[in-house]
Amino acid sequence: MTRAFSWLLSLGALAALALLLGVFAWQSGPVWQHEGAGYVTGGKWFFRQHEFGALPMICGSVVVALVALIMAAPLGLGAAVFIAEYLPRRSRLAVKMLVELLAGVPSVVYGLLGILLLRDWVYETFERFDPLSGDTLLTAGILLAVMVLPTVVTLADDALRAVPATQRRAARALGLTRAEAIWSVCLPQARRGIGAALLLSLGRALGETIAVFLVVGRQDNNLPVQLLGAGQTLTSKLGGSETNIAYGDPLHWGAMMGLGLLLLLLTGAVTLLGSLKGRRDA
């Protein structure tokens, strides 16, 4: 009885996941027929003319997420090294709990901070480069960097703590200083785990919608050639009102679903890679 129910509900849940993937693949069908590979390589999106090219959105997503990771990774790794290697156990737990608590700040709250504070700051700081407004790819990148920072810190800390204490003791016994032990023993041994931490953070950054939506400028048809320009990401396009407009027109809706499919593949691949790297049992 328990067993049957367990199987039934589990299969239901897995079927829902499969349906999710299937729906995006199936509903995006029309646009693949209409545009072919040009859907991924095309740079122009004019839905009234039935012209759909997703390249600016794909590049926008990748650029914004990479900017975020480039800023968050060094700071986050440094913080993780300090928390894992220097702090005594009790305060380490306290700081880690604080960081995990802060990882839960909702994205709409980050968006609010971005729109009311960060946007003006970016505009004033980079005024000599003549940005049109504070809504830029860079603004979204900075905001995302702060958002993924707790994830980087806590996962990298886990990776460092997974290095056995005997390794540290052996290194110190050989006469290495603390910094040398960390640099040439702990960090190399935690390489896989740190790589996984960065990949999972990248996945989060790629999939973040609301905060990016509020500060990225949502300018269509702009390839992200300069960071101080407005842009569009896969998620900000999907989060916009065009999703409501598009339902009814199979081709236009197909194009929107295609964006969802691309987003699924991108984040799915990055997350899958990250969790395979991080856990040998997964």
Partner: peptide, 13 residues
């Protein structure tokens, strides 16, 4: 683990 990393907008759509 993969489903845990899926973006929430995908669930919304």
């Amino acid at each position: 683990y993969t489903a845990n990393g899926l973006p929430s907008i995908v669930f919304g759509i």
